[in-house]
């Protein structure tokens, strides 16, 4: 398995763990009572802002840690350049991930249109975001493994 394949798998695993832990930690802290109260929207605004910040910090930490451990375990230098194949795979994987996010976004809007609460809509949107990351990383792994 190449460095890029291992990196894609590590990113896949870390995004699942980060989002699952964050969701499990934050969901019970939703404001109770009126589902349309301003506190609900404030909560979800903070929810996504903190998630973005935490994800970026942890992703950077995981990438650095992975590179160090990979160098020690595999005794091979980490590729320092991103070449045309890496960019093509990244582009294709991002496009597939974007489709997944679009489906999640549409489902969230359908939920809202059907009269479900804003919290339900935000949860569906969050799941769509996670699905998009998972599909993105898995697609990258797949393209590295099977060719592009």
């Amino acid at each position: 398995m190449s460095f890029q394949e291992r990196r894609a798998l590590v990113s896949l695993g870390s995004s699942i763990v980060i989002n699952a832990v964050y969701l499990a930690y934050m969901l019970p802290r939703q404001p109770a009572g009126d589902p349309y109260a301003p506190e609900v929207f404030r909560f979800w605004g903070e929810f996504f802002l903190i998630l973005i910040l935490v994800s970026i910090i942890i992703e950077i930490a995981v990438t650095i840690l992975f590179s160090i451990l990979n160098t020690i375990a595999m005794r091979e230098a980490v590729p320092t350049i991103t070449d045309e194949r890496d960019r093509l795979i990244e582009l294709k994987a991002s496009r597939i991930g974007f489709y997944a996010f679009t489906i999640g976004f549409l489902l969230a809007m359908i939920a809202l249109a059907m009269g479900m609460t804003p919290s339900t809509m935000f949860i569906i949107m969050m799941i769509g975001g996670v699905a998009s990351q998972v599909v993105d990383h898995f697609s990258a792994f797949w393209f590295y493994r099977r060719g592009v």
């Binding site: 190449s2 460095f3 590729p79 070449d83 045309e84 194949r85 890496d86 590295y144 060719g147 592009v148």
Partner: peptide, 22 residues
Amino acid sequence: VGVTRQTIVAIEQGKYTPSLEL
């Protein structure tokens, strides 16, 4: 040629067709 070793591996295995420039 300015790519990673993995890209050369992929080309040799027929898993990647490079750009005209490469």
